[in-house]
């Protein structure tokens, strides 16, 4: 019997905090009251717990002297606030509700992108722009080349191709039979032959051969 009482006391004393916090339902409260009403030990424990709780709750909120926070206020005043339109904008956004904080920048980006999207959609897909002919420039920077310019460019190109051919041959000799290296000359010739097959744009000159 005594052990049963002890275990009851143990459980009741475990419940003291729940009782003091008002977290018990009515049935639990009734059981708690019934035990405390007939058990002097638990009643005394409850009294002590209650007094302790009341003492803790009645401990005052304290405040420090103003002098303690004076350097802190000075710190804030000493650092000048760097105002900029960007910070002001961020601060303005911060002050708005969360959905607007994200929706407004997204709307702005969408508005900026709008002309690009329309420009792209106006082009017919799969159709390339026609090649520009001499004198058909779209801007002030386009110029018409004279025959002398073309001849000079072809001479430069021939020189460059000769150099590349020599480099290609030298590379072939250096590597020997270990690797098959196609000289640049052969690659370029193959490209021109491929181009010659196209009937629409026949090669007008052969600067290399």
């Amino acid at each position: 019997m005594a052990s049963n009482n002890d275990s009851q006391c143990y459980f009741v004393q475990l419940q003291i905090d729940s009782f003091l916090d008002g977290e018990m339902d009515s049935a639990q409260q009734a059981e708690f009251h019934a035990h405390v009403g007939q058990c002097a030990v638990c009643a005394q424990e409850l009294k002590f717990a209650h007094m302790l709780h009341e003492s803790i709750v009645s401990l005052p909120q304290l405040d420090c002297e103003d002098a303690v926070l004076e350097p802190i206020h000075r710190l804030g005043a000493a650092e000048p606030e760097h105002r900029s339109w960007w910070r002001d904008t961020l601060a303005w956004l911060d002050s708005m509700p969360v959905f607007a904080r994200y929706a407004l920048p997204a709307l702005l980006v969408a508005l900026i992108m709008l002309p690009f999207v329309f420009a792209e959609s106006s082009e017919v897909p799969g159709q390339m722009a026609p090649p520009l002919l001499a004198g058909q420039g779209t801007g002030p920077e386009s110029t018409e080349y004279s025959t002398a310019d073309v001849q000079k460019a072809l001479a430069d190109l021939n020189l460059a191709m000769q150099y590349l051919n020599q480099v290609g041959l030298r590379t072939e000799v250096m590597i020997g039979d270990r690797f098959l290296v196609t000289p640049v000359r052969d690659s370029v010739r193959a490209s021109f032959e491929k181009g010659r097959d196209r009937t629409d744009v026949p090669p007008r000159s052969d600067p290399i051969f």
Partner: peptide
Amino acid sequence: TTTNSDEGTRHG
């Protein structure tokens, strides 16, 4: 305070 919170409770 105990009495207030334990309405109807008899203290041993």
